[in-house]
């Protein structure tokens, strides 16, 4: 008997957005403004991914309550080798556990606000709570394999960030996908030519590409996004979509 097709709907998804906590993000990257801009751009699902910290994820999830936008809690982790990997979770608690793992492995150095910005922790309404005075713009002492394993052990989705870029992209830094690492998909940056990326990196040519904005400014939110067909806007459903299971799927980028 043919299976009934899942009641999926098309979602516009941008899984890589920074807040004012991230080095070099503009001060207007505040939860309420981010959600408002995402809604204005017609985004259904976004993920907050600051550098090595999840401290503003709960505030962004709260800011999205009652809006058409759903927010996932993420971290843009930096590995020992200087590779950026997104760890995406349904809730701020799991992202917080990943943050604990990273902070135990980050060098004990102070942020220099004149170079990296103030690194502000804020409320859902964008009110100042505190500064994170630790240097976040650096690598944790964990390999990219260890980061991916940790993200998955916490129930998250691990996506190597902006793989088309030489700076901090998995393949730019490490040349090859490390042996034994099985990826579900990769993030490509807004301006990347997907065909060119597939030609340059045949190892990932068959993987799904998720295009995301890596927004550090309000004006960049949604400037790159991916259409994904989901029933619910969760990490579990994103994993199904990346595997093309149960009617969940994503557009060919």
């Amino acid at each position: 008997m043919p299976r009934a097709s899942a009641p999926v709907r098309k979602c516009r998804v941008d899984l890589h957005i920074h807040t004012a906590l991230s080095p070099c993000a503009e001060l207007e990257m505040l939860p309420d403004l981010i959600v408002m801009k995402a809604a204005a751009e017609g985004l259904d699902l976004i993920a907050i991914c600051d550098h090595n910290s999840a401290e503003n994820t709960a505030a962004c999830i709260e800011a999205a309550r009652g809006t058409p936008v759903r927010v996932l809690a993420g971290i843009e982790c930096e590995s020992r080798e200087g590779v950026h990997v997104l760890g995406l979770f349904d809730g701020a608690e799991s992202a917080g556990a990943l943050q604990g793992f990273l902070w135990e492995r980050l060098p004990d150095e102070a942020n220099r606000p004149e170079f990296f910005g103030a690194q502000m922790v804020v409320s859902a309404q964008g009110e100042f709570v505190r500064y994170n005075e630790r240097l976040l713009a650096t690598g944790a002492d964990a390999s990219v394999e260890e980061l991916i394993a940790k993200i998955r052990s916490l129930g998250g989705l691990a996506l190597p960030a902006h793989v088309d870029k030489t700076y901090a992209g998995l393949l730019g830094v490490l040349g090859l996908v490390p042996e034994g690492v099985r990826l579900e998909g990769v993030e490509i940056s807004g301006r990347a030519d997907a065909r060119d990326v597939r030609e340059r990196f045949p190892q990932i040519a068959k993987l799904p590409f998720l295009r995301a904005s890596d927004a550090h400014r309000l004006s960049e939110i949604g400037q790159a996004h991916t259409r994904v067909w989901l029933e619910h806007r969760t990490v579990g459903e994103l994993k199904l979509a990346l595997s093309g299971l149960d009617g969940r799927h994503l557009e060919d980028n």
Binding site: R80, E81, S143, L171, G172, V173, L174, G175
Partner: peptide, 24 residues
């Protein structure tokens, strides 16, 4: 220290100087 750069630039028989210590 960028392995993609070494793949493109290094020549056989050379010594490679780096701070990168990943398995790759």
């Amino acid at each position: 220290d960028l392995l993609s750069d070494v793949m493109g630039g290094a020549r056989p028989g050379e010594v490679w100087v780096t701070v990168q210590s990943h398995l790759n």
